[in-house]
């Protein structure tokens, strides 16, 4: 993200985005109920506890609604509200800055485009960026974290020092430079460059989380037992170590989705985000804010709606992450 998350990056060994600090809720009455319910898996328990957390449930519901809306958008949004990036230069001036109405629930923007349609399609871009960037960070982070934690030695030292370098690099400056370097043909009309940049910059924190859980799991008897039975390294990691290290990663990843969305928005404001294209439906909330900012004083709506969309979505991922953490009883310590 930006200046403001750097502190938490330093504290917690780097994040893809804002992340809640270590917190521990006191044990709830769930334990007793769990006993009564008899045989449940770890995940079953977690799901049970998550459902009882009203905030997390509300957050999950909001995310499900967003996903559903973006997936079905093509079926109903353009028909009623227009394509998000459509421009008609002949009517643009007459249609700009219209207030909210039935046909334009969020009004129109400076180019006479329907803001509701833009916010809906913007969700598609924001969610894709969030999920994909975190996926990249998780894949790279898991791979390097596993090597680092499992094998130790030179590989560990090397990987952890490279991670230090990544974390020490001023985040937004790095992102600006990387995005300036990427070939423009590749960048145009695609979310890939932004996703790659945010994702690649996010791996060190995942690697660190995994590494420390591997270090603590590695000492356990069942790992030794597995090794004694002749399991190879890959099998040990996949079957024994990862399942036990996955909980903190999951919590971490959930919260990072919001962070990635914020980062994309910040890059858009600095002129390096995802671009609209009137031949496609691609539009980013950050872009909407960046393009609407000059008109803020006369038409605050152009900045208000995409801003609210970002806030509610990021908030949902934060609260869901809180809920998942409590449900899995993860202590977020590095």
């Amino acid at each position: 993200m930006s200046d403001d998350i750097r502190a938490s990056e330093v504290l917690q060994g780097g994040v893809v985005g804002p992340q809640a600090p270590p917190e521990q809720e006191p044990p709830t009455e769930n334990l007793a109920r769990r006993e009564l319910a008899g045989t449940r898996t770890l995940w079953g328990d977690a799901w049970y506890r998550l459902r009882r957390n009203k905030m997390a449930l509300a957050a999950l519901t909001w995310i499900v609604i967003l996903v559903a809306v973006t997936l079905t958008a093509d079926l109903w949004v353009p028909q009623h509200f227009g394509m998000p990036n459509a421009i008609n230069t002949a009517t643009a001036e007459a249609n700009q800055f219209l207030g909210p109405s039935l046909g334009h629930p969020f009004g129109t923007n400076q180019l006479g485009q329907d803001m509701f349609s833009q916010v809906v399609y913007g969700a598609r871009v924001s969610l894709s960026v969030g999920f994909l960037a975190v996926a990249i960070a998780v894949v790279v982070g898991l791979l390097l974290g596993a090597i680092s934690g499992f094998y130790g030695g030179l590989a560990d030292t090397l990987i952890m020092r490279v991670a230090d370098v990544f974390l020490a690099f001023p985040y937004i400056i790095f992102a600006l430079l990387v995005l300036s370097v990427l070939p423009r043909d590749f960048v145009t009309g695609s979310i890939l460059p932004t996703v790659l940049t945010i994702g690649v910059l996010g791996w060190p924190s995942i690697a660190r989380v995994l590494r420390s859980s591997i270090l603590s799991v590695k000492q356990n008897d069942y790992v030794d037992a597995g090794r004694a039975l002749g399991a190879n390294d890959g099998r040990l990691i996949m079957r024994h170590i990862l399942p036990n290290a996955i909980a903190p990663i999951l919590v971490y990843a959930t919260m990072s989705v919001g962070g990635a969305i914020l980062t994309e928005a910040a890059l858009s404001v600095l002129g390096l985000g995802i671009l609209p294209n009137n031949l496609s439906t691609m539009i980013s909330w950050g872009q909407m804010i960046a393009q609407g900012q000059p008109y803020l004083t006369s038409s605050p709506g152009v900045v208000l709606w995409p801003g609210l969309a970002i806030v509610t979505t990021v908030l949902a991922f934060t609260l869901l992450g809180d809920g998942v953490r409590d449900a899995l009883d993860v202590k977020m310590k590095d």
């Binding site: 459509a86 230069t89 423009r184 960048v187 145009t188 671009l275 009137n278 031949l279």
Partner: peptide, 15 residues
């Protein structure tokens, strides 16, 4: 881009 699209051309932004 919108105007050039209107006369039938395919146009892409290249920032």
């Amino acid at each position: 881009q919108a105007d050039l699209t209107k006369i039938g051309l395919k146009v892409k932004l290249n920032p």
